[in-house]
Amino acid sequence: MAGIQPELQADPTGLQPGQLSALGLRAVVLVLFLLRQNPVQQVVAEPFGVSQATVSRR
């Protein structure tokens, strides 16, 4: 049981407290860009390297 306990408490992302993942930060930037500029979703998708469908889900 002692060997299992550290695994349960470990952060599965491997990030330090207060540290954003790259995907999470990119998603935040994408959403802020959408809100500020109100562009067509396909135009936003290209520089972020994602599909229009991914942008529409944000």
Rank of each mutant, 00 (worst) to 15 (best):
G3W: 12
G3P: 04
G3N: 14
I4K: 07
I4L: 14
I4Y: 04
Q5S: 15
P6K: 06
P6C: 05
E7P: 00
E7H: 11
E7D: 06
L8K: 09
Q9E: 15
Q9L: 15
A10K: 15
A10Y: 01
A10C: 07
D11V: 08
T13P: 00
G14S: 07
G14A: 05
Q16C: 06
Q16V: 07
Q16H: 11
Q16F: 08
G18P: 08
G18H: 10
G18N: 09
G18D: 09
Q19N: 03
Q19L: 01
Q19W: 00
L20A: 12
L20R: 13
A22E: 13
A22S: 07
L23F: 11
L23I: 12
L23T: 15
L23W: 09
G24Y: 02
L25M: 12
R26T: 13
R26S: 14
A27Y: 02
V28Y: 05
V28E: 11
V29P: 00
L30M: 10
L30W: 00
L30G: 01
L30N: 00
L30F: 00
V31D: 05
V31F: 01
V31E: 08
V31A: 13
F33Y: 11
L35F: 02
L35M: 08
R36A: 14
R36Q: 11
R36H: 11
R36I: 04
R36V: 09
Q37T: 14
N38L: 09
N38S: 12
N38Y: 03
P39C: 03
P39I: 02
P39G: 05
V40F: 03
V40M: 04
V40I: 08
Q42R: 14
Q42E: 12
Q42W: 01
V43G: 00
V43N: 03
V43C: 01
A45M: 01
E46V: 15
P47D: 04
P47C: 05
F48G: 04
G49C: 10
G49W: 04
V50A: 02
V50E: 00
V50C: 07
V50L: 05
S51R: 03
S51Y: 07
S51Q: 05
S51G: 15
Q52E: 13
Q52N: 06
Q52P: 00
Q52D: 03
A53T: 08
A53L: 04
A53H: 02
T54R: 10
T54F: 11
T54C: 08
V55R: 03
S56R: 15
R57D: 08
R57V: 13
R57E: 09
R58Q: 13
R58W: 10
